[in-house]
Write a protein that binds this DNA or RNA. Structure first.
Length: 186
DNA sequence: GACATGATGCTCT
DNA sequence: GAGCATCATGTCT
């Protein structure tokens, strides 16, 4: 069962927590790749100094965060890696959830080809890695997760969730200490 | 394993 | 022109 719009039209914190244990699916000409989401971070728009949309900063790059919940915000980081985020909340509330790690389930061989035959553990164990493994590119910027190319499915998992501080946002002052990172316990 | 470092390009001031 | 929501690789143990 694909998640519908209602799932995404909620606070980024709720969406980030509930995405843990769900299945992210990417369809391409090469085949289907998918994995269970095991790590996310919430970025809470205007109020969050770590967010690209802090103080409602709205530019060509951040525009997708202002879309209706359920869109895909893709951006380039450190000149070489892409990060994939799920936009949350209603239009003009710029919240998003960074997908930080997956547990590969489908299309593992295709992921290995895209990632040049890394071990299963290294295929999707970071935000820059999973975009490569799933074949996500800048063309997928602002793509709608309610369509059929990239989407998220319900599972029957009942994960135990751990909450910690977010990663690599030391520049953001006290926002760096907010417990807005969610992990599935092994 | 734990750390340090370099690669690299786009965005915003 | 600075800085960035990262990763792979190297060195040292």
């Amino acid at each position: 069962m694909k998640l519908t719009r209602n799932f995404y039209i909620r606070s980024g914190l709720v969406v980030a927590r509930e995405l843990i244990g769900k299945k992210l699916v990417s369809c391409s000409e090469e085949g289907i790749t998918a994995g269970i989401i095991i790590e996310t971070e919430a970025y809470m728009g205007a109020e969050d100094a770590a967010s690209h949309s802090y103080k409602n900063r709205r530019t060509a790059r951040t525009e997708s965060m202002f879309s209706e919940g359920g869109h895909l915000y893709v951006y380039l980081i450190y000149g070489m890696y892409l990060c994939a985020n799920v936009v949350a909340n209603v239009r003009d509330i710029p919240e998003a959830v960074l997908i930080r790690a997956l547990q590969p389930t489908d299309g593992i061989e295709l992921m290995q080809n895209r990632r040049q035959k890394k071990s299963l553990k290294d295929l999707c164990s970071g935000p820059g890695k999973l975009t490569q493994a799933l074949g996500i590119s800048k063309k997928d910027y602002d793509l709608d997760l309610c369509d059929d190319k990239i989407f998220i499915e319900e599972t029957n998992l009942k994960p135990t969730i751990i909450t910690t501080k977010r990663i690599n946002i030391d520049y953001s002052g006290e926002a760096a200490d907010y417990p807005w990172r969610f992990l599935m316990q092994n």
